[in-house]
């Protein structure tokens, strides 16, 4: 028999996901000593930036008791519109302005989601499903459908700016771009909002019980509206980072990633019923998804099995706690 404390710890998704990551790394290092190097780590980190920012936004929505499938369309729309605008109006636009513009576009699109959800009170899945189509359709119809590789110079410049780059003594190359700082900033800001402001606590309260929140005098509409605007802004940031790191504004990219992002967030312990979710868990979920997407081959699984692996991880990671809860409920009668 396991002791209760172990059971409790293992019942938490964070611990489970962390354990799987550690196991993954051990197996990977055993089969390929080159796996556990600074190079791999910096590669994986870079691959986590866009996914990580999107996941944190998605987590916020889940905590508030909703779900958002439109954020990838928001991200790609904000990125592409910003690029087009910048190229048309001021190609030499400095990157801070480009970023601000994309975040602004993202927030605007998020506000559209917020309007339908907070003001009209429509179900979140249906609304975001609709806006996913609308945003993407609008983008490809009216803004453009060409891949642009001649980005504004400052956008390309940004992707070359490094916090640190070099070669370790053992000859491993590494590079940490400034976009990593964006992820860190998002983590800190979101953590602050969630844990240090009444707004953040209201988001948790909303996810716990909308009715109670309303009775307590929490402005439910305003809180919901904020959530979708904030998620939109984060998506705008993720979009422009994606464009600048990939050195291409591709209006067909990102969309289709939404289920992977939701998978990462759910693996990290956020619950669909709302009220639960941690940044640590979400980041661990992202790390696991990125590992599977990039390094599956290292532990001897062909990369064509990527989808199966992620799917199985979701089913195990969420099925185990669900099964335990079901058993506990049956015991209680």
């Amino acid at each position: 028999m396991m002791s209760d404390r172990w059971k409790e710890l293992l019942a938490r998704n964070e611990a489970l996901v962390a354990l799987v990551i550690v196991l993954f790394c051990i197996v990977a290092t055993l089969s390929d000593p080159n796996f556990f190097t600074v190079t791999t780590l910096s590669d994986l980190l870079r691959a986590s930036i866009v996914l990580g920012i999107l996941a944190i936004g998605c987590m916020l929505v889940l905590i508030s008791g909703g779900i958002d499938v439109s954020f990838t369309a928001v991200a790609v729309s904000a990125m592409y519109m910003t690029t087009k605008l910048s190229l048309a109006v001021w190609p030499d636009m400095p990157w801070p302005l480009i970023f601000a513009l994309s975040i602004g576009f993202g927030a605007l699109l998020g506000a559209i989601n917020g309007t339908f959800i907070a003001i009209f009170g429509l179900p979140t899945l249906i609304v975001t499903l609709g806006t996913l189509s609308v945003f993407r359709g609008f983008l490809l119809t009216f803004v453009g459908s060409d891949r642009i590789s001649a980005l504004p110079p400052d956008m390309r410049e940004f992707s070359r700016m490094m916090i640190a780059r070099g070669t370790t003594e053992s000859g491993d190359f590494y590079a940490l771009p400034w976009s990593l700082a964006a992820l860190l900033g998002v983590i800190l800001l979101t953590a602050f909002i969630l844990h240090k402001t009444m707004l953040g606590r209201s988001i948790f309260a909303l996810g716990g019980s909308v009715e109670s929140a309303r009775r307590l005098g929490i402005d439910v509409r305003r809180t919901q509206f904020f959530v979708y605007v904030y998620v939109g802004a984060l998506a705008g940031l993720a979009g422009i980072l994606h464009g600048s790191m990939g050195r291409m504004a591709d209006p067909f990219s990102l969309v289709g990633l939404e289920l992977s992002v939701i998978a990462a967030v759910v693996l990290g312990g956020a619950r669909l019923i709302g009220g639960y979710g941690t940044i640590t868990g979400t980041l661990l979920g992202v790390a696991l998804i990125v590992l599977v997407q990039n390094s599956l081959i290292v532990i001897g699984i062909p990369s064509t099995w990527q989808s199966v692996t992620i799917g199985a991880l979701i089913l195990l990671g969420t099925g185990l706690p669900a099964y335990q809860a079901k058993r506990a409920a049956a015991r209680a009668g």
Partner: peptide
């Protein structure tokens, strides 16, 4: 039914598994 997973999660995961098998 047996695991008590919410359908949205169950089919999100299984959808990836089915697609994954087809890819594999």
């Amino acid at each position: 039914t047996r695991l008590g997973l919410p359908p949205i999660l169950a089919t999100l995961g299984s959808g990836l598994v089915f697609t994954g098998f087809a890819v594999a």
